[in-house]
Simulated assay, not measured.
Amino acid sequence: MYNEEDFLQLSRIQHFEFCRRQWALAYIELQWQENVRTVEGKILHENAHDASLKEKRGDLLIVRAMPIHSREMGVSGECDVVEFYKVEEGIHLAGKDGFYKVIPVEYKRGKPKAEDSDILQVAAQALCLEEMLCCRIPYGYIYYGETRHRMKVEFTDEIQEKVKNTFAEMHRYYEQRYTPKVKTSKKCNACSLKDICLPVLNKKKSVSGYIDRIIAEEEKG
């Protein structure tokens, strides 16, 4: 169990999965740079996180900007939206009659990604809700602004285990203040930190290595 002062931000798991170096530059070295994608994402989340926009539609209760945490994983954050559906068997909500099942919904500006970054984030939210509410949450949704559709995410044992292992790795990096070396790929072009990271320069051979090779060659000659 982690102490509250050691909690990491839950939403950062998507940055870590996208690129461990990006996460370390932003949240260990505290370097950050906005681009169009990050600004559009903020606008979408500001709308989803408006806590004043609570809704009740029949047997459905919609809660926005719900604070969540997990002492087991050492993380805290907010759910964009949590939907509570009235059912015959579920959890009890204070001040509400009956029982409810819990469905987290994460909002993203783009479209479904090839990697698991978005899936891990909503799965992490579900694990926090399970720990807080003492229930089992089998699935959730990701709403993509570009496609304007929800994608259903099944929270399998494999996904849940990956979330826990990823947070454990994040804690190790943070405690060691470790920034991984760059691994260039196509996704570097879309990264808001590419000018700070300088992937092309980092990929080049070091000056000290170059000097060592020159000296070694001269000694051989």
Results as ranks from 00 to 15, higher is better:
Arg37Ser: 13
Ser70Gln: 02
Met151Ala: 08
Trp32Gly: 10
Ala216Gly: 06
Tyr85Met: 13
Ala114Gly: 11
Ala190Gly: 06
Cys19Asn: 06
Val163Asp: 01
Asn47Ser: 11
Ile137Glu: 01
Gly90His: 04
Arg213Tyr: 11
Glu219Pro: 10
Met132Gln: 02
Tyr100Ala: 07
Ile211Gln: 05
Gly221Asp: 15
Arg20Gly: 08
Glu131Thr: 04
Pro67Asn: 03
Leu60Glu: 09
Met151Val: 11
Arg21Ile: 00
Gln176Arg: 15
Phe155Lys: 04
Leu129Asn: 02
Trp23Asn: 06
Ser117Lys: 12
Asp50Met: 04
Glu55Trp: 10
Ala51Thr: 11
Leu127Pro: 02
His92Trp: 11
Glu175His: 14
Phe7Asp: 09
Arg20Phe: 00
Cys197Glu: 01
Lys86Ala: 05
Tyr100Asp: 06
Tyr2Arg: 00
Lys203Met: 12
Gln121Arg: 00
Gly98Pro: 04
Thr38Gln: 10
Ile62Glu: 02
Gly95Ala: 03
Tyr100Ile: 07
Glu34Val: 13
Tyr174Met: 12
Met132Lys: 03
Lys183His: 15
Arg213Ile: 07
Phe99Arg: 13
Val102Tyr: 01
Arg12Ile: 06
Asp195Phe: 12
Glu169Cys: 03
Arg172Cys: 09
Ile68Trp: 00
Phe167Pro: 00
Leu193Gly: 02
Leu93Gln: 03
Glu72Val: 07
Val207His: 11
Val163Gly: 03
